[in-house]
Simulated assay, not measured.
Amino acid sequence: MTAAAPAALAIQVDGLTKSFGELAVLRGVDLSVRAGSICALLGSNGAGKTTLVRILATLLRADSGSAMVHGWDVQAGAADVRRAISLTGQFAAVDEVLTGRENLVLVARLRHLKQPGVIADQLLARFALTDAGGRRAGTYSGGMRRRLDIAMSLIGDPPVVFLDEPTTGLDPQARAEVWQIVSELASGGTTVLLTTQYLEEAERLATQIAILHEGRIIQQGTLAELTQLLPAATVEYVEKRPSLEDIFLALVGNTGKEDR
């Protein structure tokens, strides 16, 4: 089996359904994600975001409909899909007993890559974790652990990355660090499907937005296209004050240094 020729769409979903017993979670999802874009999948708790991601990552099987990821059918070409993707869940999947470097080396070896130590060192440097690379991951802060988790998911340079609520539970500074990483991924040509409940996160990062509600995509497009769905705004003079997050980051600073 060979993959389809590289297309403008990295993810194509048509009529996807999934139920758990009597509970219908996905009720005919249609979604198109352009290659090299950041697509924010928005939805409240229970909307089906994680279920959709798990199907696209071949961890669940849909009841009906079809889905293609990087030219491969998620059912017929599941093994090829797995080689083309990485998945970072809501909770960092690092081994807390191992050091940061050992976590990276382990994943590189599992992917049968050459020079796993070199790969680990490059990623530690890229994610500002070099000084902490010899420490057990269990001693890392939440932001450091999340950076390590994302670094592990990028081993092998997968063209499609799924990030399932990657900034849940992080403080504003750590969240900003993750946002920077995600932006850099897309700048390098990686397609990112990001599930989030934070609307500001979607506004900051996404080149396209899809809104999942009661098991269906009720709207998708760019932020500008979605904004046009509402009546035109009236212009009023409002004195804008800095947000608490603006104040926090200004006082703390975003130095890029590792947490201790």
Rank of each mutant, 00 (worst) to 15 (best):
A3F: 08
A5D: 13
P6A: 05
A7F: 00
A8G: 02
L9G: 02
L9R: 04
I11K: 09
V13P: 06
K18F: 15
F20P: 12
G21V: 02
L23Q: 15
L26R: 12
L26W: 03
S32Y: 03
I38R: 00
C39R: 06
C39W: 12
G43Q: 02
G46E: 13
T50H: 04
T50Q: 07
T51P: 01
V53A: 12
V53N: 08
L56M: 05
R61F: 14
R61C: 02
G65H: 05
S66C: 09
G71H: 00
W72K: 00
V74I: 08
Q75R: 14
Q75H: 11
A76Q: 14
G77A: 14
G77V: 13
S86F: 00
S86M: 08
S86H: 06
L87N: 12
G89E: 06
L98W: 14
L98C: 11
R101W: 07
E102H: 09
L104Y: 14
R109E: 15
L110M: 12
Q115V: 02
P116Q: 03
D121M: 00
L124W: 00
F127Y: 13
T130G: 09
G134W: 08
G134S: 10
R135E: 15
R136D: 06
S141K: 07
S141M: 06
G142Q: 06
G143F: 01
D149K: 02
A151Y: 00
M152A: 13
L154H: 08
L154I: 04
P158R: 11
D164R: 11
P166L: 09
T167F: 05
A174D: 05
E184Y: 09
T191N: 04
T191A: 08
V192M: 00
L193Q: 09
Q197T: 07
E200V: 04
A202C: 04
R204E: 09
R204F: 06
A206G: 12
T207C: 01
I209P: 14
A210S: 03
G215A: 03
R216V: 15
I217C: 04
Q219L: 13
Q219D: 08
Q220I: 02
G221C: 00
T222F: 02
A224Y: 03
E225Q: 15
T227L: 08
Q228I: 02
L230A: 15
A232G: 08
A232Q: 12
A233W: 01
V238H: 14
E239L: 12
K240W: 05
R241G: 01
P242F: 10
D246Q: 09
I247D: 07
L249H: 02
L251R: 10
V252C: 07
V252P: 03
G256H: 04
